[in-house]
Amino acid sequence: MRKPQAPPGSPENADATEAAFYDALQSGDIEKLMACWSDEDDIVCVHPGGARLLGLAAIRGAFDTMFANGAIRAQPLKVRRLQSLGASMHSLLERIEVLTEDGPRHAYVVATNVYHLTAQGWRMVAHHASPGTLPELQEASQTPFTLH
């Protein structure tokens, strides 16, 4: 398997890698998308309702299949970041535009993206997405929850 090339602009932070990832989704560019991923064997990707994909070949294959139907109109929203020296975890909503017979419709996906600082810069090591529901979109975490 060919190693990913550096994303455009050699991202100096996880935010730049995330922007390159979503740009590649929207343009349907598999090379740019895969350049955002680390070349480690244990990277992981889970699409809504899908299997756990491990490694570059499995992840690339899934995105190749998705891009065969066109680009993915996904826009990151409400990004929350937790960063340490060499890792950054982003929790966000993805607003997905779906074209229907009645025109464009929007769906929401709750996603977690994890990035590691590698010798090549910040690279994605995990992407996990699940269908969003109304309570998740309302960000219920703002209210303290007690269990007793």
Rank of each mutant, 00 (worst) to 15 (best):
E18R: 00
A71Y: 06
S91H: 11
L77R: 15
H127V: 09
P4W: 00
L137V: 04
P8Q: 10
G50D: 03
H116M: 15
L85F: 14
V79G: 10
F21M: 03
T112Q: 02
Q26G: 14
A62H: 02
V46A: 04
L147H: 06
Q142W: 12
R105V: 10
E40V: 05
G86V: 15
T118N: 05
Q138P: 06
P144R: 07
T143Q: 13
T100F: 05
E139H: 15
P4K: 01
V114C: 08
Q120K: 10
Y108L: 06
E101P: 09
M89K: 05
A51C: 11
H116Y: 15
S130D: 04
A6Y: 01
D102N: 14
E139M: 15
Q83Y: 03
L92D: 02
G49A: 01
E31Q: 08
R81N: 09
T17A: 06
G55W: 03
S88G: 11
D102L: 11
A51G: 10
M1T: 12
H106L: 09
E12N: 06
T65W: 09
D41L: 10
R81W: 09
G103S: 07
N13W: 01
P8C: 08
S88W: 03
P135M: 05
R105P: 02
N69S: 13
G55Y: 05
F63Q: 02
A19Y: 00
